[in-house]
Amino acid sequence: MNRMKNAFTKKAFIAFITAGDPDLETTYQCILEMEKAGASLVEIGIPFSDPVAEGPVIQKANIRALNGGVNTAKVFELVQRVRQVSDIPLCFMTYYNVVFHYGVEKFMAKCQDIGIDGLILPDLSFEESEEVNQFKKRYDLELISFVAPTSQNRVKMIARQAEGFIYLVSSMGVTGTRSSFAGGLEELVALIKQETDTPVAIGFGINTPEQVKELSQYCDGVIVGSAIIKIIEKYGQDAPKHVREYVKEMVAALG
């Protein structure tokens, strides 16, 4: 059974981590610590050589992981380890070529097999999503839909098809911590809510409890990536306990 729904029984804290940065053991520990700290869902990033939607922080995490010898097969093993001890909802976040090159159907079958609940593919546009959507029922996976500040004319079309949750991009540009977000986010959430009951989580740039408090008033969850990666970058293998403290503080700020 797909676990995604379990993430949204209350306001969700979604944590992103790049698999294998700085090594797979640290990633494993961080995932378990984030769960203990109250994270509702973890996005596991399969590193890609050319992550075009990422800012410098996550770009560097991708490079560190790839230089450490991480590949798709090893990330699958990581998920299998996590699944032995945890039932937390898990998504893969990666670029479409990683999935496409593995074979879309084969990749999705593998995801079901190891216990992944959803896929987040920032460069697979709504227009091209049928390539993945055609298999999602068969393998009980959700493909997460993106809505951006530029999506006003597209919200209806996207929201109607969206399942799992909707990833609302908070701002123009790439991932990375920010002090402010695009205007009109609340209106976008309202537009989405007119079309669907699928939960809406906001991501890109969120890094302080104050931001979590503010945004979670009108959406169903927040997604935090770069801020966590920064902690891992700073503390390396010693990062899991620092990540736990940070996530705990962020979760406490959820409305």
Binding site: P122, S125, S151, R154
Partner: peptide, 20 residues
């Protein structure tokens, strides 16, 4: 159709750029 050349082409790009 729609920017395809056989199986090639398409628009595999983040949502933020699609409207543009």
């Amino acid at each position: 159709k729609k920017g395809r050349f056989g199986i090639h082409g398409g628009q595999y790009i983040p949502e933020t750029l699609m409207e543009e």
